[in-house]
């Protein structure tokens, strides 16, 4: 019994010193992306430092985040995601994923890998909390009508039991405001950015979802559904939490 407790303590201290979500050497960027192990991820997120908003704002400047993600964290084009109002745990985890070398699904990810290389975990927490503190992106004009709209609202609220699809809202919130842990807010994201992300999960190019949650979901969507879902979430306004 005592041995077991020691072992547990040992594992705990190990995970505190170097949480399971360890970075790879920077030279190893071409390595095969890994999926997170859920327990490791939980421990890592639990150890996320408290962010300093002023430092976060300064890093947003000096790391040139605004070039793609917009000066106020609202992306000026559909190529990149908006970060304003995003859940800090998601931003923090994403930055770690880039640094671990687990995301090179597209040209965006390759660029991010360059930007995060020298960031400390404190830096990541600072920018994550800074973005979380900004007003979320505004809602785009609704683009869905008629049958498509009804179908997508059904998917979001009720899922599709026939395809074993859980409702999007059960994790991402009733109004796309994000959920527990690292589950991101989707409201107000641009159509292009969200659709690209779903396609990356669908094709398996992106593998950084715990328990393959998003891959299993996206693989059962049609390309038309992905496009419509992206339009749906773009038209929602992110609520402050």
């Amino acid at each position: 019994m005592r041995r077991v407790r020691l072992l547990v303590l040992g594992m705990l201290s190990l995970s505190l010193a170097a949480p399971g979500y360890a970075s790879r050497p920077a030279t190893d960027s071409a390595a095969t992306p890994r999926s997170p192990v859920a327990a490791e991820l939980r421990a890592t997120l639990a150890a996320q430092p408290r962010g300093d908003l002023q430092r976060g704002k300064a890093l947003h400047q000096s790391l040139m985040c605004a070039a793609c993600h917009g000066e106020t964290g609202v992306a000026p084009t559909g190529n990149w995601s908006s970060l304003a109002g995003q859940r800090a745990a998601y931003t923090y985890k994403s930055l770690l994923d880039y640094q671990r070398g687990d995301r090179h699904e597209d040209d965006r990810a390759n660029l991010m890998a360059v930007v995060v290389r020298d960031m400390t975990r404190q830096d990541m927490a600072d920018v994550a909390d800074y973005y979380a503190s900004l007003p979320p992106p505004p809602a785009a004009a609704p683009k869905l009508t008629g049958e498509t709209r009804r179908h997508i609202e059904q998917l979001v609220r009720r899922g599709d039991p026939a395809r074993l699809l859980t409702p999007c809202a059960s994790c991402h919130g009733a109004s796309g405001q994000g959920g527990n842990n690292e589950t991101p807010a989707l409201a107000g994201q641009s159509v292009g950015s969200l659709a690209q992300t779903l396609h990356d999960y669908r094709s398996g190019r992106r593998v950084t979802d715990a328990n393959q949650g998003m891959r299993q979901f996206a693989q059962r969507l049609t390309p038309d559904e992905i496009e419509a879902l992206a339009k749906y979430y773009a038209s929602l306004s992110g609520k402050r939490r």
């Binding site: 793609c68 000026p76 190529n79 597209d106 040209d107 660029l111």
Partner: peptide, 15 residues
């Protein structure tokens, strides 16, 4: 068509 640089077509004047 690429993402590394910002497409400028259709960008709001103020932006």
């Amino acid at each position: 068509g690429r993402v590394e640089f910002v497409p400028l077509a259709g960008m709001a004047e103020t932006e």
